[in-house]
Design a protein around this nucleic acid. Structure first.
Lengths: 188, 188
DNA sequence: CTTGGCTATGCAACGAGTTGCATAGCAGGA
DNA sequence: TCCTGCTATGCAACTCGTTGCATAGCCAAG
């Protein structure tokens, strides 16, 4: 159900089409909640028929109409209500961790390349987040002072940065452990 | 599909019934991959009919038979094959982050209690992980030296510990930000 | 003595999320 | 010229995961 609320937040920040939302979900919002265009279109349709959103068809030349969605009263109320409800603290769901434990029953060296690849992805993501932070929040071109919405966006981004840094450090720990296990114990 | 592989790893570490697996998923394995008993029973049944697992019915007095599952050849092969396949590095899916950005459109103070509650949960989890680490890996009663499987379990647990520490620090950052926004800006 | 919790398994229905495919014209590179 | 990729939307089929419920006897607490 959180996709609905993520969409409400995103559309409150700025109205847009399903396609635009899908691209936002590849960027800022999607740093902590992913969604494909399929899900988004389906949920948008449902939310509109539930009266949470309003559509405005923008005709375009030689393309299907762009449907711009925006939040209306009941949508805002639904978001507000959700914000007042407690949610379950979530646990990590880390497939790689399953693989690491599984490596005990297979050649650990095949995992090393996989872990290195993941490390690279997280390292790239970190660089991407840091560039975004510099551009929007801490760099010379950033607006000062920031308004409340921007402060909140920044603290969420700091969470993403902290997550990637932690993950990279852990993957280094994993690599060291795998390499240690790969070499026949040197002290016996 | 990762549940299947998590079950294979867990059953290779030690055979057991669906019920026992469900409880392991509340403990060690479940620190990074959650599953309810429903999913587990369903998947066990499918895996058995696919020939990945063998069942042995252990009769018990005044209780339904316990079905002890163990991994057989094709199951081991399936795990091994999966370990050689690359997986997508996963992103976080953090509902709380959606709420935090949503707080820009509502009273931020209602979020403070929620964030404090989450902080408490993560703090409890950290204590739980640290107790497990002391018991199984770093304490005086731990076996030394550890075998490869235990080393890998330990490095995964260290990942859980790092995750909880990072999360707690971030939630403190969030709380500070929310409180700062709650007080009317003191310098103007 | 009754209520709730534990072991142990399972069905049914639903909602969330993924994957493959389809349309359709335009722009840019090999 | 053909192929790829972008904008923009959508259907269909599937798997994954959650929730509610059911059985059934045992044990401990109130």
């Amino acid at each position: 159900m959180a996709l609905e609320h993520a969409i409400l937040v995103s559309l409150l920040e700025k109205p847009g089409s399903g396609y635009e939302l899908a691209r936002r979900f590849e960027r800022s919002i999607g740093y902590f909640w992913t969604a494909t265009h399929q899900q988004i279109y389906r949920v948008l349709k449902r939310m509109e028929s539930d009266g949470l959103l309003a559509v405005r068809a923008l005709p375009q030349q030689s393309r299907p109409d762009k449907k711009e969605y925006s939040v209306v009263g009941p949508g805002r109320a639904a978001l507000s209500q959700w914000l007042h409800e407690p949610i379950e603290p979530e646990s990590i769901r880390h497939e790689l961790a399953v693989k690491i434990r599984g490596a005990a029953f297979d050649d650990p060296s095949v995992l090393i390349r996989e872990v290195e690849r993941h490390r690279q992805v997280h390292s790239d993501r970190l660089a991407h987040y840091l560039a975004g932070e510099l551009r929007d929040f801490t760099g010379p071109t950033a607006l000062t002072p920031l308004d409340a919405g921007q402060e909140l966006q920044h603290v969420v981004l700091r969470g993403g940065i902290a997550f990637e840094r932690m993950t990279i450090a852990w993957l280094d720990d994993v690599l060291e452990t795998l390499r240690r296990l790969g070499t026949p114990h040197p002290d016996s």
